[in-house]
Amino acid sequence: MKRMVYIIPVLIVAVIGLLSSIFIVDERQRALVLQFGQIRQVIEEPGLNFKIPIVQQVVYYDDRILSLDTAAIEVTPSDDRRLVVDAFARYRINDVEQFRRAVGVGGMRLAEERLEGILNPQIRAVLGSEGVTSNTILSADRAQLMARITTQARARALSLGLEVLDVRLKQTNLPTQNLDATFSRMRAEREREATDERARGEEAALRVRAQADRTVVELVSEANREAEIIRGEADAERNRIFAEAFGQDPEFFEFYRSMTAYERALRQQNSTMVISPDGEFFEYLGGSRGTLLPPAQE
């Protein structure tokens, strides 16, 4: 019984020691075994591993491809047209031992700060190099510039134990002050084009209206001329007919003329007419030649 009292604590301590000496590295990780801050073992393969309890500790690092978004920086291409670029990089920890020596206990935060310190100068150097204009940066040739940045950044990131896989630009904008000036120039240019278009449209409209007015005047003049000709021919024909009628029966012609005058003079609108019944106007209504009125009673 007394032996069991001593054996059980020993077994418990042994089990705890065994469990604390076992650690697992999965396929997404790499690990370093440290002893008093010194690297004792590098674990690059996934699986079950052992360490000395209490004396040694395990530090895990991500073995996947990581992403870093850099802060927006201002670059000046060879055409002196400043741009604000925002880039991102894909990288991975290539050498965990070198990575540990480079960043120490700062870990990924310090590593990303140093990597960004490598990327930004390379971006400025490549995008500001001779022959690189803002149009080049905004064209399909940008892929070649990104390849140059990636190559140069990769060489410098090896000292951190990192492998830069790719660098890309997310956004390329003008600085705020330049952007406002550019928008103002664009607005002024569009307003000028709009004014030119309106002027050309008004000029074309004036030409069309002038042509239409000229056509109207010509058509009206031609119509009036033809109407006057027809009216003159009709008057001539009418006078000819009247002349023939007058020549055939002068008395009937005078009678017809008088009847027409009566019809025009004795309309409803003329309510009052003061005239002598013995005048020549009523010759055919009651004169010596007329028979339409009864003779006057004495």
Rank of each mutant, 00 (worst) to 15 (best):
E244S: 09
E197I: 15
V15G: 05
T136Y: 05
S139R: 06
S20E: 14
A265C: 06
I24Q: 07
R148A: 15
A140S: 14
N178H: 08
P250K: 06
I123Y: 03
L219R: 09
L32E: 00
E163P: 03
L145M: 04
V96L: 03
E237I: 07
V167N: 10
T172V: 15
E74D: 09
S159I: 06
A140Q: 12
I43F: 07
G117C: 02
E298C: 08
F252W: 09
G47I: 09
E203D: 13
P121I: 06
D79R: 10
A157E: 01
V15R: 01
L165D: 09
L127A: 06
N135V: 04
I118T: 10
V58G: 03
A87Q: 04
T136W: 02
V75F: 08
G201L: 13
F282N: 03
N173E: 09
A181N: 13
A143K: 13
V5E: 12
G128W: 04
S288N: 08
E202P: 00
E280W: 07
E251C: 00
E218Q: 11
L18C: 10
E254T: 06
M146D: 10
G107S: 04
R225A: 11
I43P: 02
K2D: 12
A265N: 08
T195L: 13
T76L: 15
A212Q: 13
S78L: 05
F282D: 02
A143G: 05
E189M: 10
A223H: 06
N224V: 13
E203Q: 12
F253I: 02
A188G: 11
